[in-house]
Amino acid sequence: MSTSRIPEILRKHEAALLDDWTREQNQLGDISHRLSEADLRAQSRRFLQLLQEAATRGDAADTDTEAFREVRRFLEEVSASRAALGFSPSETATFVFSFKQPLFNQIRASLPSAEDQLAEIWTATLLLDKLGLYTMETYQKTRESIIARQQEEMLELSTPVVKLWDGVLALPIIGTLDSSRTQTIMENLLEKIVETGSELAIIDITGVPTVDTLTAQHLLKTVTAARLMGAECIISGIRPQIAQTIVHLGVELGDIITKASLADAFRIAMQRTGHVVVRKAATSRL
């Protein structure tokens, strides 16, 4: 149980605190174009209620406890909604920090002894600092998860596996291949091989600017994994510099079929699947 007077102060002067705080927030910066005055007031009132309940039940200086669970959850909501509304990190944290001034004033007005005032102001500082930092952290996490989701979406979009012919897939790779992107692309290709029952896949790296040892090894591993599943890969679009790099890096391509162009690879694929490409004699339509 808390021996602090803060819960009592929060309870007794709730209305006055709310007024002071709302005024304080409006003074600190104009956010009315993103959040209406009424919404802001509702948010502030809810926070005051939860804070008062938590501080009554638990230790006012320890916000990691069960008593503060609802407060923490509410702050998560606030920072997530503010992150989505385009608030900056400091604008988001200001919500909590701006409550300091009104609360300190109220502490000074309610307690006669200077010593008590000091002690309670210290407790209030600790409490609001922790909650403010928690809001920042949650804001950061929300942003990180948005970035992570976008990265995933980008990875998926950037790796289309296309069907060239019955039993022949092509994977044109464009852009730099880092380790995690290569992994995602390759897993995707192997899944598609199973889905479509294709025994041949052409990995075209014409659009890949450079290949390092790790990327080359990932390509090799993919070809080996495809073989274990019963499919064969052809690597095409190896540009002169990449051919040089591969040799300089000492990467052993073994018996993997490599072709300079996608067209050459496709020709091999047609041969392998028992097709013959013939050009019809010129007709009047052409």
Binding site: A225, M229, G230
Partner: peptide, 28 residues
């Protein structure tokens, strides 16, 4: 053989040389 299994075996260093593989029972 499932893709995840194939990737894991390769990472483990087992490429099962000398074993022939196919995608489906029909092809096998």
């Amino acid at each position: 053989m499932r893709p995840a299994v194939a990737i894991t075996l390769v990472e483990l260093g087992m490429s099962l040389p000398g074993i022939r593989t196919a995608l489906t029972v029909e092809r096998g």
